[in-house]
Amino acid sequence: MHETGLAPYACDPALSRGRRYFEPPAPTRTEYQRDRDRIVHSTAFRRLVYKTQVFLNHEGDLFRTRLTHSLEVAQLGRSIARSLRLNEDLVEAICLAHDLGHTPFGHAGQDALNDCMTGFGGFEHNLQSLRVVDALEDRYPAYDGINLTFETREGILKHCSRRNAELIEARESGGVGRRFLLGQQPSLEAQLCNLADEIAYNAHDIDDGVRSGLITLEQLREVPLFERYRAQAQAQYPQLGRATGRRRLLSEAIRRMLSDQVYDVIAATRAALAEHAPSDVDAVRGLPALVGFSAGMRAQSRQLKSFLFRELYRHPQVVQTTDGARQVVRELFALYQAEPRQMPAAQAGWALEGDAQQRARTVADFIAGMTDRYAAREHERLTGQRLLG
């Protein structure tokens, strides 16, 4: 099924490199629409609702989770893709799947699990997201994983070390690891998802940070990217300066910031496309990254990221909670390694049947698939300690 209205450098599902296991085309959906549907129906996608973005799941009902983050990324991605005549369905599929391999407890959980896997190949959530869709989902009788198209899988694998790329290439010659070995770019749709991810988390981390009380509107005045829109909103609506209007002031400033960043990406990307004029998808791969901010917006975005890192992600209250999360992950890993039968029967069987490498990877897969609250309950069951919640 060909799609009309796409730019020549966009990914056409009728020209997809295909799936690892052949399947006849669907009568009513394109290949990328099928990918999106499979992702939404996956077990890993449902689990994102109880996985940390910044604040642990038990800390409040209104904070973003990995699921709501993924939905916000997909919304931004589709909006930008439409203006650039890129494939919206592919963008949505990649955005919805990009965090499927994330551990419980956000980056703290990932860092702890990576430490545990030292000597066993390490742990990285982008690679784990690919592993989820290629191997760990068990919904189909004919193959492991959910058999996504090359283009969706390529977009999911945002980062990859050379060593891991070589391992992927050995299993799948010319596959999704090849571009890392050749120093090439992914599709424009994949590039767009990377940037939509950044735009989304910068905006919603401001919102959650202020809502939590860990950062304030007064502190944010030192961030030029945010302060410009706060000042505009308050000048247009003076009543928002009162205590009762601060919630709306925050929302309006973030809305304006998001809109300007989206328009900036569209304008900067159009300029890059006009300069390099890629003739098709393959031509995109040999060029510099084409989807991006203007130089000025990139600099301001980096300032915002530095502020959030310093004032929110390294806030003592966040650090205290994430220290407990790291302990949960480390101790769960050690306990399951020592006694695999504490895991469900399937995982216990794989761990006991294999060598040390397979046992460690099975334990890491099991822990990475946990939600925040399941990990905390398992840790309490096995240790008698209640560290979180």
Rank of each mutant, 00 (worst) to 15 (best):
E353I: 00
R46D: 09
A112T: 01
A346Q: 08
M1E: 07
G119P: 00
A351H: 06
S173Q: 14
A368H: 10
M343N: 08
H315P: 15
K158P: 07
D138G: 07
S301W: 11
D280Q: 08
A272M: 00
R66K: 09
R373I: 03
G60T: 06
H69C: 10
D138T: 08
F293S: 10
D115S: 12
Y9V: 02
L100S: 03
I367L: 03
L96Y: 08
A368L: 15
M297R: 09
R211K: 13
E222R: 09
E166G: 13
T371L: 00
V54T: 14
G296N: 14
E31P: 00
L90I: 06
G369V: 02
R36Y: 01
L192V: 10
R171T: 11
Q239V: 04
A356V: 07
A299K: 12
G60S: 05
A253I: 05
R178D: 15
E353K: 13
T30H: 02
P238H: 04
N194F: 13
V210G: 11
D207I: 12
V132W: 04
A10R: 13
A283G: 14
L214T: 03
A165H: 03
T52H: 10
Y32F: 15
R20E: 04
V40R: 06
H41T: 04
F293W: 12
G5L: 03
H107I: 05
N202G: 09
Q239F: 05
Q327S: 07
G175W: 05
R247C: 05
Q184H: 15
R285P: 12
S129W: 01
A135F: 06
P224M: 09
V176F: 04
L220Q: 00
V133D: 00
A142C: 14
D61A: 15
A97K: 04
S294P: 13
E339A: 14
H102S: 08
D35C: 07
L90G: 14
L312F: 07
I80T: 13
I266C: 05
R211Q: 13
H41L: 10
L249S: 05
Q219I: 00
A289I: 12
Y140V: 01
R163P: 00
D35G: 02
Y9C: 02
D134W: 08
S70K: 02
T68S: 15
F55R: 07
D323Y: 08
D197R: 05
P13S: 09
T322V: 08
L67G: 07
L388E: 10
S16D: 02
S279P: 07
L258S: 10
L67Q: 09
R310P: 09
L217F: 05
A267K: 03
Q300W: 09
T52A: 04
V262W: 01
Q184P: 12
M117R: 04
F150W: 10
V176D: 05
G60R: 15
R377K: 14
F120G: 05
A272N: 14
E172N: 11
W350V: 05
A338Q: 13
S16Q: 12
L86V: 03
F22E: 11
M343V: 13
E339M: 06
L332A: 12
L304W: 11
I146Q: 06
T216G: 02
S251F: 04
